[in-house]
Write a protein that binds this DNA or RNA. Structure first.
Length: 499
RNA sequence: GGCGCUAUCGUCUAUCGGUUAGGACAGCCGCCUUUCACGUGGCAAAGACGGGUUCGAUUCCCGUUAGCGCUACCA
């Protein structure tokens, strides 16, 4: 049987290096066995999914060098490859489960469910749907449905016994059915949840090996249960460890740059990033050179060498690898081409020139005026940030609130940036012009520069986040408590275009 | 709180019962060099803890501890 793997990102944010890591492993495994690798978009969360995010993820994975045999952009015999376009398929399968008595309609309100869980937790029991709606007879269920009560469809789960399954790397894992919740399979909006859509699609797309992040281990029983309810042969499964911050917590953008676009704008070469990620999945042995092309990684890939402990994303090692690629793998012409593509594309140069021209007297002013556009973190000191109307405490708040707002923006745009920063000023009860200065310094390194919103737009969200975090490190990173309190300031500002 | 996963130098890892526990990044000391970088030679650095099993455990089993994950009509 031909090996078929997939990566199934959810388009709810910027492309994440964790997605690249999982994608790379799936790619290497499939190709190592002469199989196929596909890409599926899991956009069943209508509220958070955006087409822009989907495009960004596809672009970023392409940039990294991954190619898929089937996917929303390249098509294939098992499409559509976007879950939002497969509603009818899920509906049919849900009906099948309902008809067979493997699932049931649940009319419980969020409030009741909350209270139930609080009580269960207090009693030291695993949170699990208590089965109230399961006790209704067919007549009662039909009556509620007819009266227009919204409902979800839940999975029926065995009352006792244990679910035993094999993880390709971890071996046998046992989880008691009592600890497995009666998962919602179809939301009241009629769309499936991840669990249902994922299982149905993996089966229909003939996925033979599901290789995914460790966060899915505890929901594996639900998935396996679905396979058995449908009478399908489940795929082999394996869970990859989660990438970590240096403090060992799950890699998060609060503590570290996690966006692929950040690494791109920092000037890391895609082959170096892929190489680095590949090393975290399959390390080189003893004396072997750690510089490995994608082809080499495919060739030497071995599942049983994938680590189980969450590897720390060590930027220093990435730096070293990238340095070697820059020095050893690019001839002068290729180097020039890379630099051009990195930050000197004609469109970008044009745009920057238009912003810079009115602000200089000599062409030689250009270097210092624009240096920040071609740099990573700026060498800031507290004194650089001071000098405006805000004291340190206010600047820390301003930067932190900006981080909140900028992260919450659906799309990165000048208009959005402006709205976000004005909101921050309002939340702090300051005039925007007083707040502007520290932002100029944090972002551009100087209180006078090209327009702030353009600068931020040009830099990109990930780099802006990095600069703001850099400024916060200089002034003192807010504690979790401070962050939570400050966030309330933002909540107090009404949404909308006003400001 | 409940359930699960994990545990070798600071970091990424090798070891598949017997090794002076190996390599790489970072660090430190040299060499090379008009600076820096690169390159190169070397140094330092690890089996979480406690029980078993065994002639012998880093390796197998159990417990403890710690870290992480899950605990949603998000994925």
């Amino acid at each position: 049987m031909k090996v078929r793997t997939r990566i199934a990102p959810s388009p709810t944010g910027d492309p994440h290096v964790g997605t690249a890591y999982v994608g790379l492993v799936n790619y290497c495994f499939a190709k190592h066995h002469g199989g196929e690798f596909l890409l599926r978009i899991e956009d069943t969360d209508q509220v958070r999914s955006t087409p822009q995010s989907e495009q960004a993820i596809l672009d970023a994975l392409h940039w990294l060098g991954l190619r898929w045999d089937e996917g929303p952009d390249v098509g294939g015999p098992h499409g559509p490859y976007r879950q939002s376009e497969r509603s009818a398929i899920y509906r049919k399968h849900v009906d099948e489960l309902l008809a067979a008595g493997h699932a049931f309609k649940c009319f419980c309100t969020a409030l009741r469910l909350d209270e139930m869980r609080v009580a269960q937790r207090a009693a030291g029991k695993p949170p699990r749907y208590d089965g109230l709606c399961l006790s209704y007879g067919a007549a009662e269920t039909a009556r509620r449905e007819a009266s227009g009560e919204p409902y979800v469809v839940r999975l029926k789960v065995p009352e006792n016994g244990v679910c035993t399954f094999d993880d390709l790397r971890r071996g046998t894992i046992e989880i008691e059915w009592q600890g497995v919740d009666m998962q919602v399979l179809m939301k009241s909006d009629g769309l499936p949840t991840y669990h249902l859509a994922n299982v149905v699609d993996d089966h229909l797309m003939e996925i033979t090996h599901v290789i995914r992040g460790e966060e899915w281990v505890s929901s594996a029983p639900k998935h396996l249960l679905l396979y058995s309810y449908f009478g399908w042969q489940p795929p082999s499964i394996m869970h990859l460890p989660l990438l970590r911050n240096p403090d060992k917590s799950k890699l998060s953008k609060r503590k570290n740059p996690t966006g692929m676009l950040f690494y791109k704008s920092m000037g890391y070469l895609p082959e170096a990033l892929a190489n680095f990620l590949g090393l975290l999945a399959n390390s080189a042995h003893d004396g072997q050179d750690e510089i490995l092309s994608l082809e080499q990684m495919v060739e030497r890939f071995a599942l049983d060498h994938v680590p189980l402990g969450g590897p720390v994303f060590d930027v220093q090692k990435l730096d070293w690898l990238n340095g070697r690629y820059v020095r050893e793998r690019l001839d002068p012409a290729a180097f020039v081409a890379r630099v051009r593509d990195w930050a000197f594309t004609p469109e970008r140069v044009e745009r920057i020139a238009q912003l810079a021209q009115p602000r200089i007297e000599r062409l030689s002013d250009l270097g210092l005026l624009l240096a920040f556009l071609f740099a990573g973190r700026l060498p800031l000191e507290a004194a650089d940030l001071r000098g405006g109307k805000l004291d340190d405490a206010a600047m820390r708040q301003a930067f932190q609130l900006a981080l909140f707002e900028l992260d919450a923006m659906p799309d990165w745009s000048i208009a959005g940036i402006e709205r976000a920063l004005k909101r921050v000023a309002e939340a702090l009860g300051r005039k925007f012009r007083d707040v502007a200065r520290p932002f100029y310094v944090a972002i551009t390194g100087s209180p006078t520069s090209i327009p702030l919103y353009d600068a931020m737009d040009l830099l990109g969200r990930d780099m802006v986040r990095e600069r703001l975090r850099g400024a916060l490190e200089v002034l003192g990173v807010p504690s979790a408590k401070e962050q939570a309190e400050w966030k309330k300031l933002l909540d107090a500002v009404p949404q909308g275009e006003s400001a």
